[in-house]
Design a protein around this nucleic acid. Structure first.
Lengths: 211, 211
DNA sequence: GCAGTGAATATTGTATACAGAATACCGACC
DNA sequence: GGTCGGTATTCTGTATACAATATTCACTGC
């Protein structure tokens, strides 16, 4: 099965990568012309990708003034966090029992996360993978897709936070306690701890932004 | 304050209108060329609007085969319904106390909804206005925007349902009971009734689609 | 009559071109 | 020296052009 992926999707990924690598810091203007030249494509697919990114909250689009990387803003972070937290709780709720195999995998990811020092990108990837693994049993595919899209926002904040604050581990002990509750099949406690995990994370990031 | 709105936004609205009016029935192919000609604009803003609509779930986009109106599908409806229900509950939860003035407005909308017979479009508008009014105190603007976008999906199903099934009133008595609980300041009961309202609606539409 | 093949056409995805708005530059005046 | 006004340039939003892929449809062979 061969697949042709539209240029706009590749551009989309490329822009995200540049933002995450720090090549495009917050508030930096993003000129479609420049990107098109750098990526060796025309403006059309670039603009399609930028429009998508601005609908997803990564970029801002002012009519007639083009695109810019959305500045980090505590309010936006808290708002997105509240939404994502709620949707992930729903996804966990819709997931049936988590099979032991997956619980083991969660523990493994968490251990690796705890052991990772200094590599911010790897850290964030692992954290997100932990969440994705936790929810991969959720049968609501649209919900999973939406969660995946929404992660764009907190990821930016986590990256900035970890870079500047130097702290690397984002509460791996929270993860462990959630998994522990799931092992005991105590959905109630797991859900509560999951909520708490989210709330603490949002608060921590929010407070840091308003430093 | 004058505002220039991009053509893509106007096209976006125009396409939605055509879909809701039934000019573009489910599974109908949507050719950007045709739309561009009909609307008197070029393909560029049309494609931008179509790409957005396909990301929002109203259209399907197959690489190389263009766009088509997504067929009605019970699974999609249930999935979107679960998400929207959860997010609206969150929004209600985040709203502070609903001022009496707004409660009165809710009652008024509901009475008008109950009195409307036969006009499907007006019905749906009123139902959505009821929900929007209920949640207009929610301070999480991003959440409000997301809810507003997500309504695209159930609206299509409600429209088809009301058209074919002939039933017009979508549980105005549910609305009344929710408002009643809010009047008593019984958040708990209001939330529960709100959940129930959503669940019933989703079930009803889902069962009808699988008729 | 019907399946299969191939040319003709239509339509998409991408590239380029163009017009108007926004920004930068620059000199004149206070 | 700083500020205002005007022009030049850049950049955006939209239109058009082009190349490659899908689709259509007539024709051939069975």
């Amino acid at each position: 099965m061969i697949t042709r992926t539209p240029l706009r999707d590749q551009v989309y990924q490329a822009v995200l990568t540049r933002i995450y690598r720090g090549d495009l810091p917050p508030a930096r203007r993003v000129r479609d012309t420049d990107l098109a030249a750098q990526l060796g494509v025309s403006r059309t697919p670039v603009r399609e990708a930028l429009l998508r990114l601005s609908r997803e909250g990564v970029l801002e689009a002012d009519m007639g003034r083009g695109f810019s990387v959305r500045p980090l803003d505590a309010t936006e972070m808290r708002e997105s966090g509240a939404i994502l937290s709620t949707l992930e709780r729903l996804a966990l709720d819709l997931s049936g029992d988590i099979p032991p195999e997956r619980l083991a995998r969660l523990g493994e990811i968490d251990r690796e996360l705890a052991a990772t020092r200094g590599d911010v990108d790897r850290c964030i990837d692992l954290d997100e993978e932990w969440h994705r693994t936790l929810l991969e049993g959720c049968p609501n595919l649209r919900l999973r897709a939406m969660i995946s899209t929404l992660w764009q926002v907190p990821r930016r904040y986590m990256r900035a936070f970890l870079r500047e604050a130097g702290r690397v581990s984002l509460s791996t002990q929270h993860h462990a306690r959630i998994v522990e509750a799931l092992r005991r099949n105590d959905r109630e406690a797991a859900m509560q701890r999951f909520s708490h995990h989210w709330q603490r994370g949002i608060e921590e990031l929010g407070a840091w932004i308003e430093r």
